[in-house]
Amino acid sequence: MPDEKPTSFRELFLRHRRGLLDYLRRRVGPEDASDLLQETFVRALRRERFDTVEDPPAFLKQIAVNLSRDLARRRESEARYFVAGEDAEDIVDPTIAPDDLHEASERARRFLAAVEALPPKCRQAFVLRRFEDLSHDEIAARLGVTRNMVEKHLRLALERLRAALD
C-alpha cells in the first residue's frame, strides 16, 4: 500500500503531512513548521501538471527541503542586518537632518517601485541574488533557466534600478 500512487491530492496530503511536519519541525522548529508544511502543499498545488510528477512524496519532500533552506538563509540575512530588541529611537541617529531622512525615504520608495516594475523573472533573479544571497547557479536552478539567462536578468535589473535612482 505505501508504494501505491495516491489517487488524489487530498489522499497525498493525508498520507504524508505527518512525516513532512516532523521533518520540518526538526529543521526549522515548531513555530515555523506548520507554515512551511502549508506552503509545501500550496506550491505543489500550484505546479502545472502535478499529476505527471513521477514520485509525488519525493517531490513534496524536495519542496519542504527547499523551503527550510530558504528560511535558514532568510534568518541568516536578518541576523546580519537586524538587531533584535533595539527600539527605532535607539537606531535612528538624532543628528541626522530631517531633510536627509526624507531624501533617504524617497530614494527607498523609488527603489522599491523600480524593483516591483521589473519583469517577473528579472525581479525574482534580483531578489534571490541580492536578498537571499543565492549564487547564479542556485538562481538558475530555482527559476528553471540557464546561468547565462540569470546573468542577463541581473544586468537588466541593475540597469533599470540605476536609472530609477539617478
Rank of each mutant, 00 (worst) to 15 (best):
A88W: 11
R18G: 03
E116S: 14
V28E: 04
R129F: 11
P56F: 05
R142Q: 14
A164F: 06
A72H: 04
A97H: 13
C122K: 08
D133G: 02
R109Q: 10
F41L: 09
E76W: 01
L14C: 03
F9C: 01
I63Q: 06
R17K: 13
D3L: 14
V115I: 15
T52Y: 09
A164N: 10
R109N: 04
A72M: 03
L45Q: 08
R43M: 12
F111L: 15
S105A: 14
P57H: 02
F41W: 10
V28S: 08
A163C: 04
V42S: 02
R18Y: 01
D99L: 14
V92M: 13
E78M: 01
A104H: 10
H153C: 13
R142I: 05
R75T: 02
R73S: 02
R26Y: 01
S135Y: 09
E106A: 15
R74L: 09
P57T: 01
D55W: 03
L118H: 11
L21I: 03
E31F: 04
A163V: 06
V65M: 08
V65F: 11
I91P: 01
L45P: 00
V92S: 06
R160D: 04
F9K: 03
E132S: 05
E86C: 02
F50G: 07
A140R: 11
F82H: 12
R74S: 04
Q124C: 06
R147D: 15
E106P: 00
D137R: 15
F59Y: 13
